[in-house]
Amino acid sequence: MKYLKYILIFLFLFDLNLLSANENNSHSKITKNLRCLICQGQSIHDSDSEFANSIKILVSKKLNDGFSEDQIYIFLKEKYGEWILYDPGYNKNTYFLWLLPLLMFIIGGAIILKRFIIKKN
């Protein structure tokens, strides 16, 4: 009975697979990573401003011309600055942003180990 349920779930999911297959995967990936300058706080993908619509067209055009994702980012960064990217790359401005959380994780683990696990006497 239990297994039957799993099989049903599985079949159902399999069915959905056929529906998915997003054709322009990289297009939506790129536009979701771009921040709209007009309605700031929204991504280009989600925004309907004139600016966002133009950027969407531009991205598909660049993709057609054989630009890679990174090349498109570099192009737009040069025009509008770092700010337009939602994904802050790893560079001198963002060392702390990326490393601080990881550092905290390691420190936290060390504290737990030292205080609670190893010191058993």
Binding site: N53, S54, I55, I57, L58, K61, K79, Y80
Partner: peptide, 9 residues
Amino acid sequence: NGIIAIEWG
């Protein structure tokens, strides 16, 4: 479609 304006930033 606004692409040239983007070229200009």
